[in-house]
Amino acid sequence: MTLKTLGAAALIAASTTVAHADDWTAYTYSSVSTTSAVKGMTRIAERVAADSDLEIDLHLGKTLQIASADITQAVGDGIIDMAADFFFSGSVPLARVLNLPMLIENDDEWAKAYAAMEPTLVDAFAQQGVVLLGGYRYPEQTIFTTFKINSLADLDGHKIRVTSPEQGHFIEEFGGAAITLSGSEVPTSLERGVIEGVLTASAGGAKNWHEFLPYNYRFSVNYGNSMIIANADSFNALSEDTKATLRAIVAEEGPKTTAAFLEDEEVQKKAQSEAGMTLVSAAEGDASDASAKLAPFWESWAKENGPEYEAALATVRAAIGK
């Protein structure tokens, strides 16, 4: 357990020292209440309270002393009962197979890949003391920059913020330097030239950082997703009816959150364009070039991590026909 999660434990212990079936503490990585992510989690909490004896107290990102990378661990350790976690890959790295660059390229492929991987993901989260209830997906991660960009070749020599080692490999394949920063560090890093671009969605990070990013290259690198999870002991302490109610509500609200993000993506693209951002369509040949460069990486990534990863990659590729 990290010092930050220990701090969170001490904070929450002031109000509760054991999991209560009727009173849960939930957390989301997002610190902005108006995002589709937070609105979705808020609806879950409100609906569960109305339809069962379970009360869920939702805390926004940064309001508890839990680092983004520690959220799944904090749930597994019982520091919090429930969470939406975008940064789960450190705790459940097998799940990163869904985020490999150029592997999943459209909504249909995502749906097929996730359905095929879901049983494996349920087991992987269970090993962390966590129940995987569902989740939601962001729109495609595209490239936002401070410099003019017309093709992937223009990444050469530039510093780009990424959110995973796999995204970093993509940037490096095209001559860029991958840099990992927390979301709160992005604006000042763009201002100071520490980074010159980010991989994100128009309805994701670009919604807050667009004023620093005059160019958006509409090339889909990969998809990012969040998992909605619960502490296994807390979940098992619920009545069977409440368990079923919680699962059913998450199963409805997860896809609704995804749909809201996709709708907001179009709204934000339009607003960002009208505010002066230059949106550039993907250059002919970039997709095939990127796929050719990244396909060997999928294989090496899986092989380096072991048979379980190779099996997961094979499952996804069979599901989407690649």
Score class of each variant (00 low, 15 high):
2 T>Y: 03
3 L>Q: 13
5 T>V: 15
9 A>D: 01
11 L>Q: 15
14 A>L: 13
14 A>W: 07
14 A>F: 01
17 T>G: 12
18 V>K: 13
19 A>V: 11
20 H>M: 10
21 A>D: 06
24 W>T: 01
26 A>I: 09
28 T>W: 02
28 T>G: 11
32 V>Y: 03
36 S>N: 14
39 K>T: 10
41 M>S: 10
44 I>D: 03
47 R>W: 05
48 V>I: 14
49 A>V: 06
50 A>R: 14
57 D>I: 09
59 H>M: 12
60 L>E: 08
60 L>A: 01
63 T>Q: 15
68 S>W: 06
69 A>H: 11
71 I>S: 01
71 I>T: 15
72 T>E: 08
73 Q>R: 15
74 A>I: 06
78 G>Y: 08
81 D>P: 05
82 M>S: 07
84 A>K: 02
85 D>T: 13
86 F>R: 06
90 G>M: 03
90 G>D: 05
91 S>I: 03
97 V>F: 02
98 L>Q: 04
102 M>C: 14
112 K>M: 01
120 T>L: 00
121 L>A: 08
122 V>P: 04
123 D>E: 15
124 A>I: 10
125 F>V: 09
125 F>P: 05
128 Q>D: 00
129 G>F: 05
130 V>F: 05
133 L>G: 04
137 R>E: 07
139 P>M: 08
141 Q>P: 03
149 I>K: 01
154 D>S: 13
154 D>Q: 12
155 L>G: 09
158 H>Q: 09
168 G>E: 00
175 G>V: 13
178 A>P: 03
179 I>C: 01
180 T>R: 14
186 V>E: 00
196 E>W: 09
205 G>P: 00
206 A>S: 13
206 A>V: 09
206 A>G: 09
208 N>C: 00
210 H>F: 12
210 H>G: 06
211 E>C: 04
213 L>C: 07
214 P>W: 03
220 S>W: 05
221 V>Y: 07
225 N>Q: 14
228 I>A: 02
236 N>F: 04
236 N>H: 12
239 S>I: 03
241 D>G: 07
249 I>K: 04
250 V>R: 08
250 V>A: 02
251 A>F: 07
253 E>T: 13
255 P>T: 04
256 K>L: 12
258 T>V: 08
258 T>K: 00
259 A>V: 11
262 L>C: 02
268 Q>H: 10
268 Q>A: 02
269 K>P: 07
270 K>E: 10
272 Q>A: 12
274 E>D: 15
275 A>D: 08
276 G>Q: 07
277 M>R: 13
278 T>L: 14
282 A>P: 06
284 E>C: 04
285 G>P: 04
291 S>Y: 08
291 S>T: 09
293 K>C: 00
294 L>N: 00
298 W>T: 01
298 W>D: 06
299 E>P: 09
300 S>T: 15
306 G>D: 09
307 P>R: 13
308 E>T: 14
310 E>G: 14
313 L>G: 00
314 A>C: 10
315 T>E: 03
315 T>G: 00
315 T>C: 08
318 A>F: 08
319 A>Y: 00
